[in-house]
Amino acid sequence: PSSRILATADGPLLLAFKRDFGGDGESDPAQDIKTHFRVCRFVMETGVKLGMRSVPVATACVLYHRFFERVSIRAYEPYLVAMSCVYLAGKVEEQHIRTRDIINVSHRYFNSGSAPLECDKEFWDLRDSVVQCELLILRQLNFHVSFEHPHKYLLHYLLSVKSLVNRHAWSRTPI
């Protein structure tokens, strides 16, 4: 897995990804679910930092899950796919987000406190990766990129179990 680091394998690690899984390449569903959970948390955090509305963020997450329903998590770097999903979701939901912003926010997410990326070859390589990965997602999903969000059903479900939830916890939940 160490070889699967974006387009810039020779440069210093651009985004120091934590590898959540072992190097044997065997699939471990429990481990994969954990990884997907972490990546989606990354998508949401990135989305909030980029000032995205909640619908595009939800779209990005759905795109991400749909993509990995079709391909193995071992074939593509999940965080790169997530960045492309954010970019693509912006296009689908008419809230356009620049690749530069996505890359900068992601860079900060993985290397907190470090300076923003220089506009050099590494940056361009990373941007090309995001753009190419976007096309890959589109092709894997056969261009089916707009859909009914599962989130709205979840939202109604949550509202229906409101009375079962600790009132204090509920008041602090942003719904």
Binding site: L88, T99, V130, Q132, E134, L138, F143, V145
Partner: peptide, 14 residues
């Protein structure tokens, strides 16, 4: 926009 155009994404998905 870089990469795939918004219009292309929309048109193909619809």
């Amino acid at each position: 926009t870089i990469g795939v155009e918004d219009a292309t994404v929309r048109e193909l998905s619809c």
